[in-house]
Amino acid sequence: MRGKPGDEAMKRIFIKEEYCLGCRLCEIYCQVKHSKSKKIIKAFKEELVDVLPRVLVEEIGHNAFAIQCRHCVDAPCVAACISGAMQKNKNTGVVTCDEEKCVGCWSCIMACPYGAIKRDLVGRKIASKCDLCEDEDIPVCVKNCPNEALEFRDTGE
């Protein structure tokens, strides 16, 4: 657990653009985390094609940075969602997509100013996005960044 329910001092991922090397390890660990086996070799040999990374590394020349859902205070994807799948947790502020409820209308993709939501076309078409690795102490993209270009800390700090 991170913080108590109702505790608005929420932890978020902060991007430190100047430190990103563009190594894409965050993407790889995100894919593994969201694979079935959660094992890097097995995931990459057998499941990779089926698992989208929910963090995206952008790169122009030597400039690079990794971006994932910002879990906006006033999330446009939640307002745009027609199925009730995209929800902002009242206690933690984390925005998640209930994949069972999602109908793949792509309204969230149309609304997200970060371009942080993808179409997952394997199986039932649904929206795919960062869930902040809610069952981990630290999201795997942050934990495995070799240059600390991603940071996980309280929003107030």
Partner: peptide
């Protein structure tokens, strides 16, 4: 191809 269409929405809105 509608990938990242929302980036344009952000540019319009702001």
């Amino acid at each position: 191809n509608i990938e990242r269409a929302g980036i344009y929405a952000g540019l319009i809105k702001n």
